[in-house]
Design a protein around this nucleic acid. Structure first.
Lengths: 202, 202
DNA sequence: TTCGGAACTGCAACGTGTTTCTATTATGAC
DNA sequence: GTCATAATAGAAACACGTTGCAGTTCCGAA
């Protein structure tokens, strides 16, 4: 078994990049309609107009597939938000702003979020590469928020900032899991996240 | 499908309590030997000397089974530790003491931890009841540590303490997941947890 | 243009979680 | 002790992730 998904850069031909795109599109469409369970490999293959074997060539498991979809979603969002600095006067305000946006975005599509979150949480060591990509995106998003105007692309954040960003993303993930599994309402989730940010950023 | 596991209190006859115990014993033995994948329902049934259908009567899914096993483990540990107050002069010291103990305990049996942690994170809404039990156990453990000598059984902790306990358990869970999935070493895990505690408790 | 290898298709098969069904056994009311 | 009911055993069947394979198509090098 291959252990890594084919990333966009690996793929030489335009046809291949297009296949990859179709597969991820199908994944997100199915996830959005019925959540984790609805993302069935045969269904993804069919909807992406690709053979099952090919799907497995691009993404060696359902988890790889979903985590890669998450990475792409994240990337798209980051691209859209662009380089605009995060509004807010204090790190705490900015982080809460960013998380509130992100959380609201996810809560707008509960099924999709459920699928992506559960895949992320279930991922084992073979998905380390893909997970790492998502982790980086999350960290950079939070660091931008913490720094605000002062943020400079590529600059090393301090150890303290890294630690803070990690705690926040841990809390955010747990909160998302609680929400996804119906153990917390959207309001409780938001509130919990904001409390935690207040606790860590002061 | 039933949505809840049979808890020890539900079970009238001694034979039934014993079946339940055998099932959980088998689960833990298999998990300890080969992790999540080794906990196969047929194998659990056979080792517990119970028919597959009976196993499903007691625990409606593999996830229910594993989360219930986690709850029992937690309970046993809490019972053993007993009412002894947690050593340490500050909340931070006490919490770190408790977490270090717990983490070390789990890292001593990586397979078992992997199985239980992944089940916990993968659980969906139908496992809410069982998850809630574990959440309570975790919270009460942390609150005891935060309060130290001042802890009184059954007393309501302040909102602030609840928030702190929750942030810590979120971080702890995420760290455990990172460790279990091979994304972090035991040392990194311990260090990350302690950094987070230092950040939140001050 | 031709050729060789990689990529793709279509399909069958396997493993494991889950469901279902029938026959058998234990349990509790009377 | 007898009977009704629930619980259990045993085994087959289903669903879906995953693997394997034979045949076909695509693509770059010569």
């Amino acid at each position: 078994m291959t252990t890594n998904s084919l990333t966009a850069e690996d793929l030489g031909s335009a046809a291949q990049r297009d296949r990859r795109r179709r597969i991820l599109d199908a994944t997100i469409a199915l996830a959005s309609k019925g959540g984790f369970d609805a993302v069935q490999m045969r269904a993804v293959a069919e909807q992406a107009d690709v053979a099952l074997g090919t799907l497995y060539r691009y993404f060696p498991s359902k988890i790889h597939l979903l985590v890669s979809a998450l990475a792409r979603q994240f990337e798209d969002t980051q691209t859209m938000v662009g380089r605009r600095p995060v509004p807010g006067d204090t790190p705490s305000e900015r982080v809460i702003y960013v998380l509130r946006r992100a959380t609201r975005g996810m809560q707008g599509d509960a099924n999709l979020t459920e699928a992506l979150t559960r895949a992320f949480m279930f991922a084992d060591a073979t998905v380390a590469t893909e997970i790492h990509v998502v982790g980086m995106q999350m960290t950079s998003m939070l660091n931008r928020a913490i720094k605000g105007e002062a943020y400079v692309e590529g600059e090393q954040p301090s150890d303290q900032d890294v630690a803070i960003a990690r705690v926040i993303s841990d809390v955010w993930l747990s909160a998302l899991v609680s929400w996804v599994t119906g153990r917390a309402t959207a309001e409780e989730t938001a509130e919990h996240i904001e409390t935690a940010v207040g606790l860590v950023l002061r």
